[in-house]
Structure formats: structure tokens, C-alpha cells
Design a binder for these strands. Structure first.
Length: 961
DNA sequence: AACGTCACCTAC
DNA sequence: TAAGGTAGGTGACGTT
């Protein structure tokens, strides 16, 4: 039930000082390892170029303006000519948006005025760019037809709605004359609540453009009168669906799927060729929306086109101690690397520098005397390379905003056209994104049509829990590699030096562009995100710019459409929280016997499937009587809510979940068989996406500030969960007893949400596993499929400190050797503790669990503290950063506090602690151990918290035996 | 000393 | 306009 990958693993053996000294030495080596790596690329290129008979220059003279013949590799491959009458056009779609434009003759849809046109960007198997304009699709929403409505009134309704919408517009810049394109009667059913399959007449209202949906919805809601019908409020349905999602759902297109335009059905756009850069868009085509074929991501259609991924990094010459400001400080270098998705090395490596720069083997250096020229040329470089994906580190909130603002300050007017559609200016906007999950986050956005911005920092913030998110720390964590050693403070000095110092800066800059590419590859971001887009049906860009809900909405709409169900618009209002899961009161202690752990797999999804919980099966108050349902037709959940059984109607959510979970099983089975490592990655990405998607369905129903909250579902789910964990405890404890012939009386010593930890009274891991497997199977038989209890692991020994805080040796694959030491909730896995504390506790836990020597743990803790007291440990990295100032009067009766920081290569841990010489620091309110603080030894105080924990763990009576 | 509230981060 | 959920440990800090 946790979807975020945890990579905050403790600093295993990670005395930061030691590593620091070593790497510092490496950094001074010249040339750096990275430079060698770069030159290797060059050798590979030379071979390739010899075959092609072309080579790029190493250094371009200062002042030479950009042109495409600088390096022929920058451009996309030459596209073969396409004949729309005889060739199908097939491409993988990567992004999609819409714009308002003039209708194109011969295409379906409105012909007058501005019409919404979907624009789909993609790449062919050969790596050619496609921009597909899709015509004839208009936005719409539903309202229930008023009673007595017949088709005779459609015109009245349409005319009157059109008129009030027009009147409602404050200005009519686009000179719109028709707002309502069409009103039709359709047979639909409200998906919220079971009403006995009451299919009703709905009015499907098609508007001329997406932004007219909201006012039309509002006017109908507020009260609308037409023809002979009285003034009344109309409940809107599906009026809050993004236009892109609406289109994708209706045309069965999912994110990153392959799209085929059949011959004879599409038209090439005539482009007046003004410059040779035009060859980048061979594939500008028009097509009617019903003519496009979308291929489900199966078989051959799982492949990924050779997308171009560009990573870049900029350097600015900031003033001493001041963060660079775009209106004052220049951009001095931009490094870029371009790689094709699926290949292992970047095939373009460039640095644009201000002033001369000595050559770097393996990369092309372009020098400029004017910053304006540098910026403009880089923008042209970007447009020529025409990347499908742009990555980098914090490009979204730093590099791109800085470049745009700098270009504006220098009036480089041709700079801010960075998208794949010429003529659209890239503009910087502020965006606030807020969620309980991620807190408030202020972000900037830049529109860049057709290019997916894949800021690696944003990916990491979303998907990984890390102690530090600097590029250096992240690279070290995932790649065991670090940035080139250049301090921010000397960047300006390097720039103002000579071509050798600027070269050093360029190597640094190149590495900062290279690391994001490496990380992207290592973490398989592109593959995993594509699979997520395919599974949930949303565009790739949504996955980084939007929350979790949109993914469920997309799936829900797709499933609902098949059954003519429509989704109501609900007003979002926060309400009372509902009760969640049970955490069994732990029998705290140290267990030197095997503890078996049994888990319900995918608990919440399986509850929803087993009991058919859904919007469409919910019986609202009074429905049972109204519909005359008999007791066999429905169930009552532990929270008293009622749902019809699947024999009456199968719910949408259970269907979605079944599809997701069977697809996951299939993916896992294929994964086992697959030998091609690349296809394996795709499949693994898919099974992960499927799991995450299944788990977020429950959260969606409980999201009270959401698109379609339904607390009856979510509280029933947790209600069943509570009942099940309780029942599991009872079942296990009742069957596995001495009186039934087992070795001991089973006792559930702990459990959280979907798991129980059982002391079975056996003495070996093997027995604990065998009985565990049998027990899981036996307990499962008491529940409705697909609910299933599984044996997961044995802990031996097991240290249960508190609710959500425990540690143990983890046995799963073998009964003979433990797989790992598993720590949950303890300081070692928390990011709000300094590494000193985490490391010490980790070592102590190893002493306790692996060496089985609790006294040794205490001794170790004491030793470390004693070492600190006697300055036997290098504490040069421990520095007092701030004395919290208080006046003498304020000191009266209070303690002074000192803030202390432990510096590590990656970050600075701050701890405030009381500073009172010779006092005993005692937190007896919680019955903890105490230790005394010696005068003037600040670091001792830092360790007080450690001692408290170690003492609590080790000196408690239960650990002594 | 006892207790409540908050921020933070984790377990599911 | 957009935003997955609840349970719960722990330390800092303020009030009584």
C-alpha cells in the first residue's frame, strides 16, 4: 500500500569523512575519468563517421553563426517521401494538445470560425517527426433531459443555451457567433449509485470550443429556461474532463501508443520551404478524428520509437555570494547531450561557450564572443536537433526560466521558440501545485509544444524518497558517480581566466548534462513513464504535471463509456475523515524465535473486487425499498453501506481492477519468459505501473477534494480490512494450538492493515515457513476470492519496539540464511535524523540481531560517545552554526539552545539542543533513559538522542534474555 | 510534571 | 483550477 520507492537506505558503512577524503583525491586527477569517457565516445563516432564519410569540426571559430552544416548529425534522419494515397503513416505518439485554428478544407467538423484541432506529435520507426492535426472532434458534456423532453425541443434548447452563453461572455475577442454546436438526445445512465439500470434520456451538448464548456455548465446549473419548460437547474455530467482526455477516451488512444493513419485517409500539409531546417517536419498531416487507428500496446506495438532525448545544463557567471539573476548575470556556457531512446550513448555532445575554450576530445565546442549570439544559436541548435524529450536537472525551475528571462533581458527575440510548432512562443508561467501527498509546491512552467519536459529532479521528487536531492548526491546514490569538482564560487573566476580554465568549466558543464541522461537510463524513467501512460491512458506529460486522480478518471471514463454510463460533476467540499486501518497493539519485545508474517496481497483492490464495491453498485438511502431488492441481491458492508452484488450488476471499479491485475499477472509471466533485456525492462515497468494504478483506485474514492469522491466505498473498504485482520488473528490463534497437536500456541504479536506477525511456537525458520504457508492457505479459504492471504517472510530474531517501529532478520528465499536486516520506522530509515545517529543505531541493531549481543550494542554506543568526548573521532565536520540568541532575562528559567550541524558531503544536518553545563538532561516524562551532558562538549548532546534510543532498546528487561 | 498541538516522516 | 487515503511515532514547544 505504499507506492513511493524508498531509497533512503541507511548510510551503510558510510562514514562520510572517509569517502570524502578519497573522492577529493580523485577529483584532482587530470584528465578526469569523465574526460576519458567522453573521448571514448569520440572514437566510436569516428568509426561511424568514416563509414558515413562525414565528420564534425572540433572547435568552431568564435563568431561563426550556427548553421546546420556545422554538424550533419544534429538533424533528424532524412525522411523518405510519403504518398498518402498508397502509404499508411505509422508513428508512436508522444504528446498531444489542441489549439484553435481555421478549419482545413476537406476535413470534418465545423467550417466557420475557429475550431478546436487536436495536435498529436510523434516519431516514426525511422526516427522522423510527425505532427498530426486531427479534425472534427468537439468538446461536449451531458445534462439529464428534463421530464417531458422530446426531440422537438432540441432546437429551442440549443438556441436558448447558445444565446445565454453568448450573453455571458464579457468580451468576444474571437467574434464567436455559435457557441453550442449541437444538442442530441442520448440514452445514458448516471454512474453514481445503483438505480435499477435506469437508462434515461440525457442531452449531449457539444460546444464550439473547450473553454465554453465551463460557462455553459455553470449557466445550466444556476438555472436555465427554454421553450415551454420551467426555469430549472441542470446537473452537469462530464463537464470537467480535460479536452485531451476526452479525445483520447473517445478515440481509444492511450498515452504513447502507436497510431496509424491509413492510406487515402490523411493529407500531407503543403509547407513552403523557406530554409533547410524545414526538413525536420516531413510529417505534418491532417486527418479526420474517426480515421485514425490506435493500436493497443500489445505484441509489436509495445515497441518504442527512437525518440531523441536532449539533456542540457547552463552555467551562469554569478556575483560573489549572490544567486545568479537573469537580468544581471550572463549565461556563459550551455552543454547539451542528445541520445536516442534505447541506445546507450549520446550521439551529440556540444558546449556553447562565451569566449574561447580549449578543445575537449569527444565533444564539439562552439565559441561565441556575444552572449546574445550564444543564446540564439543554442535555440537554433535545439530546434534543429528537434528533441522529443528534454531533460536536465532542475531545468523546469532554473535553467529554462533563466534562459528565457536572460534572452528577454538581452532582447534575443528569436530565442523563445522552443517547441516543435514554429511560431509559438515559449512563455514562462508560475504554477502552484498542492496536494496532501507532496505539500505545496511552487513551480514554473514553460510551454514547449510537442516536446516532453522530463526534469529529472521532478521525477526523483515524485518517485523516490531520498535524503538529499542534489545532482551530486543523487548521482552518487544511483550511479556511484559524482559531479566534476567545481565550486560555484569559482565559476566566474574560471570564466574570466583563459581558454584552459573555461575548458575546465565546460567539462563540468558537460558532466552536468550527462549525469541526468545516465540517471534517466539507470532508473528507466522513460520506459516506466511510458508504460504508466499506456496503462492509465493519459499523455506522458500529465504524469509529471498532474496528480494521481487524472489517471483513475481516464480509466473510469474508458470503462464507463462501454456501458453508456456517465460521470457526474460533484462539487468538492472537504468533510470528516473516515476511519482507516487497524494496527494491532504490539506485544513489544525482543523475540529470539521465528516470527511468521502473513500478508493480504493487494488488500484494498481485492476487497473492492470481492465485494463488488463501486459507484455503480452503491445503494443510496432508500434504494433497497424503492427498487424492491431482495436480501440476496445486495450486501451490507461493515460500515452499514449497501452495494448490489455482481449478479445484479458488476461494478466498474472491480472491472478496472481485474483488468489491471490480470494484466499485471500477464506482464509478470511474460517477464519470466522474456530474454531480451530491453523487453524485460518494458515489462517490468509495466507490471509496476499496473500495481501502482490498482492501488490508487481506493485512494481516488476517498479523495474528498476530488473528481468523484465516494466515502461509502472507501470506508467500506477499510471497514472490511479491519474485520479481516481481526478475523485472521482469531483464525490463526484458534487453529494453531498445542491442544490441536501443534508445537505451540500461536500468538499474533503485531499486525498493521494487511499483515499479521505470528509467533507459532516453533523453533526453526523452516517450520515457521511451512506452517506459515499452510496457515495462509487455510485462512484464505475463509474469504471471498480474490482475497488471498499469503505467506511472505519469517523474522528471526525480531525486535518489536512499537507500532510501526520494528527490526528483524528477514528470511524469505531460504530458511538457511537471512536475506537482509529489515528495519521499519526506526531512525535508521528516517530522513530527519543525522547520519551519525542512523549509523550508530544501525550498528547497534546489527549487534543485537545478527551478533545476538545486546550488551555489545550498549558497549558500542558508549564507546562511540566516549570517543567523541575524548575527541578521538574527527569532529571537524561538526560545527556550531547558530546560537539561538536570547537576552539574559529570557534565559531565566530556560535553557539556551545551540544549533549544531553535521556536515556530510551532501548535506548539513542541523540539530538544536539545550546547552546547560553539568545538568542532567532527563526526559523522564516518557520514561526514557537519561544521560548527562558534560560541559563544552556539544557533540555529546547530539548523541543524547542516540543513547536514549539505545538504552531503551537494550536496557529494557525483555532484551536481556 | 502533564498535556495538547504541531511538523515531520514513516507504515501500510 | 487542481489537489490519492488513514494510523501513528517522535521531538519541539507552549500552556497550565
Amino acid at each position: 500500500m505504499d507506492y513511493k520507492r524508498r531509497n533512503g537506505s541507511p548510510f551503510v558503512g558510510g562514514a562520510s569523512q572517509a569517502k570524502r577524503g578519497k573522492t577529493a583525491g580523485e577529483w584532482q586527477d587530470s584528465p578526469s575519468q569523465f574526460e576519458e569517457e567522453l573521448s571514448m565516445f569520440d572514437e566510436a563516432d569516428l568509426e561511424a563517421e568514416e563509414r558515413e564519410g562525414e565528420a564534425g569540426q572540433d572547435v568552431i571559430p568564435v563568431g561563426d553563426l550556427f548553421s546546420t552544416n556545422i554538424n550533419p548529425r544534429w538533424q533528424r534522419p532524412q525522411a523518405s517521401t510519403v504518398d498518402p494515397s498508397s502509404d499508411n503513416l505509422v508513428f508512436q505518439q508522444t504528446d498531444l494538445d489542441y489549439y484553435l485554428g481555421n478549419a482545413v478544407a476537406g476535413m470534418p467538423g465545423q467550417v466557420q470560425g475557429k475550431v478546436p484541432i487536436i495536435r498529436m506529435f510523434g516519431v516514426t520507426d525511422k526516427g522522423n517527426s510527425v505532427c498530426c492535426h486531427i479534425h472534427g472532434f468537439a468538446p461536449y458534456f451531458y445534462v439529464p433531459a428534463p421530464s417531458g423532453f422530446t426531440s422537438d425541443y432540441l432546437d429551442d434548447f440549443k438556441r436558448e443555451l447558445n444565446s445565454v452563453v453568448l450573453k455571458d461572455m464579457r468580451s468576444n475577442k474571437d467574434n464567436i457567433s455559435v457557441t453550442v454546436l449541437a444538442v442530441d438526445i442520448t440514452r445514458k445512465e448516471n454512474m453514481y449509485g445503483y438505480h435499477g439500470k435506469r437508462i434515461m434520456d440525457f442531452l449531449r451538448i457539444t460546444m464550439a470550443m473547450p473553454r465554453l464548456i465551463a460557462p455553459a455548465k455553470r449557466l445550466l446549473e444556476q438555472g436555465f429556461k427554454f421553450g415551454p419548460f420551467p426555469l430549472q437547474s441542470y446537473q452537469p455530467y462530464e463537464a470537467n474532463i480535460d479536452f485531451e482526455i476526452r479525445f483520447m477516451v473517445d478515440s481509444d488512444v492511450v498515452g504513447c501508443c502507436w497510431v496509424e493513419l491509413p492510406k487515402g485517409k490523411y493529407r500531407l500539409r503543403e509547407e513552403k520551404s523557406t530554409s533547410n531546417t524545414d526538413s525536420e517536419y516531413p510529417g505534418k498531416v491532417d486527418v479526420g478524428w474517426t480515421d485514425l487507428i490506435s493500436h493497443p500496446a500489445e505484441g509489436d506495438w509495445q515497441r518504442i520509437a527512437p525518440l531523441r532525448v536532449l539533456s542540457f545544463d547552463i552555467e551562469c557567471a554569478g556575483r560573489k555570494g549572490i544567486f545568479p539573476e537573469p537580468d544581471k548575470d550572463p549565461v556563459i556556457q550551455i552543454a547539451s547531450m542528445v541520445q536516442r531512446q534505447g541506445e546507450t550513448e549520446p550521439f551529440i555532445r556540444t558546449v556553447f561557450t562565451l569566449q574561447s575554450c580549449a578543445s575537449i576530445v569527444g565533444s564539439q565546442i562552439l565559441c561565441f564572443t556575444q552572449e546574445r549570439q550564444l543564446l540564439q544559436s543554442w535555440a537554433e541548435f535545439l530546434r534543429t536537433v528537434d528533441p522529443d524529450i528534454i531533460t536536465g536537472y532542475n531545468i523546469q525551475n532554473f535553467d529554462f526560466p533563466f534562459l528565457l528571462n536572460r534572452a528577454a533581458a538581452l532582447k534575443v527575440n528569436l530565442f523563445p521558440y522552443l517547441g516543435r510548432v514554429r511560431g509559438i512562443k515559449s512563455v514562462l508561467r508560475d504554477l502552484n501545485f498542492q496536494s496532501k501527498q507532496m505539500g505545496r509546491r511552487e513551480n514554473k512552467t514553460i510551454n514547449m509544444e510537442g516536446r516532453v519536459q522530463f526534469d529529472l529532479l521532478q521525477v526523483l521528487l515524485r518517485d523516490y524518497k531520498l535524503r538529499s536531492y542534489t545532482l551530486n548526491a543523487v548521482s552518487f546514490h544511483f550511479l556511484q558517480e559524482q559531479k566534476e569538482d567545481v565550486q560555484h564560487s569559482i565559476i566566474s573566476d574560471l570564466q574570466n581566466g583563459n581558454e584552459q580554465t573555461r575548458r575546465r568549466l565546460a567539462v563540468y558543464c558537460l558532466k552536468d548534462a550527462y549525469l541526468p541522461l545516465r540517471l534517466l537510463q539507470k532508473l528507466m524513467c522513460v520506459i516506466n513513464y511510458m508504460e504508466m501512460a499506456r496503462v492509465t491512458g493519459v499523455p506522458l506529460t500529465y504524469l509529471l504535471s498532474r496528480g494521481q486522480q487524472i489517471k483513475v478518471v481516464s480509466q473510469l471514463l474508458r470503462q464507463a463509456m462501454k456501458q453508456d454510463l456517465v460521470m457526474p460533476v460533484v462539487k468538492t467540499e472537504g468533510g470528516e475523515d473516515y476511519t482507516g486501518a487497524t494496527v494491532i497493539e504490539p506485544e513489544k519485545g525482543y523475540y529470539s524465535v521465528p516470527i511468521t508474517t502473513l500478508d493480504f496481497s493487494s488488500l484494498y483492490p481485492s476487497i473492492m473486487m470481492a465485494h463488488n464495491l463501486c459507484y455503480t453498485t452503491l445503494l443510496q438511502r432508500g434504494s433497497v425499498e424503492k427498487l424492491g431488492l431482495s436480501p440476496e441481491d445486495f450486501i451490507k458492508t461493515p460500515t452499514g453501506d449497501q452495494f448490489v452484488k455482481s449478479s445484479v450488476r458488476k461494478g466498474l471499479l472491480p472491472e478496472i481492477l481485474e483488468n489491471l491485475l490480470t494484466a499485471r499477472k500477464r506482464a509478470k509471466a511474460e517477464l519470466k519468459k522474456e530474454t531480451d533485456p530491453f523487453k524485460k525492462q518494458v515489462l517490468d515497468g509495466r507490471q509496476l505501473a499496473l500495481k501502482i494504478s490498482a492501488n490508487s483506485v481506493y485512494g481516488f474514492t476517498g479523495a474528498q477534494v476530488g473528481k468523484l469522491p465516494c466515502l461509502e466505498i472507501s470506508q467500506s473498504v477499510t471497514g472490511f480490512g479491519r474485520q479481516m485482520i481481526e478475523q485472521t488473528k482469531q483464525l490463526v490463534e484458534s487453529k494453531y494450538t498445542i491442544s490441536s497437536g501443534y508445537q505451540g500456541d500461536a500468538k499474533v504479536i503485531y499486525g498493521d492493515t494487511d499483515s499479521v506477525m505470528v509467533k507459532l511456537g516453533v523453533s526453526t525458520v523452516r517450520e515457521a515457513m511451512e506452517i506459515g504457508k499452510e496457515a495462509a492457505e487455510w485462512v484464505s479459504s475463509h474469504f471471498t476470492p480474490p482475497i488471498k492471504l499469503e505467506f511472505e517472510k519469517v523474522y528471526f530474531p525480531y525486535l518489536l519496539i512499537n507500532k510501526k517501529r520494528y527490526a528483524g532478520l528477514y528470511f524469505s528465499s531460504s530458511a538457511d540464511a537471512h536475506d537482509k536486516m529489515d528495519c521499519k520506522g526506526i531512525e535508521t530509515v528516517r530522513r530527519d535524523n543525522c547520519p551519525l545517529v542512523a549509523n550508530l543505531i544501525n550498528t547497534c541493531l546489527q549487534r543485537i540481531l545478527i551478533d545476538r549481543d545486546p550488551q555489545g550494542a550498549v558497549a558500542h554506543a558508549k564507546e562511540v560517545i566516549s570517543d567523541l568526548l575524548c575527541n578521538r573521532i574527527d569532529i571537524s565536520q561538526l560545527v556550531i552554526t547558530k546560537e539561538l540568541t536570547r537576552t539574559a532575562q529570557e534565559y531565566a528559567g530556560k535553557q539556551a539552545h545551540v544549533e549544531l550541524a553535521e556536515r556530510t558531503p551532501f548535506m548539513c544536518w542541523r540539530t538544536t539542543f539545550p546547552l546547560t553545563p553539568n545538568t542532567t538532561w532527563n526526559s523522564s516524562s516518557r520514561q526514557r533513559a537519561s544521560c548527562s551532558v558534560s560541559p563544552n562538549t556539544h557533540q555529546t548532546s547530539l548523541l543524547c538522542s542516540v543513547m536514549v534510543i539505545i538504552f531503551r532498546i537494550c536496557s529494557d528487561p525483555w532484551i536481556q534474555n
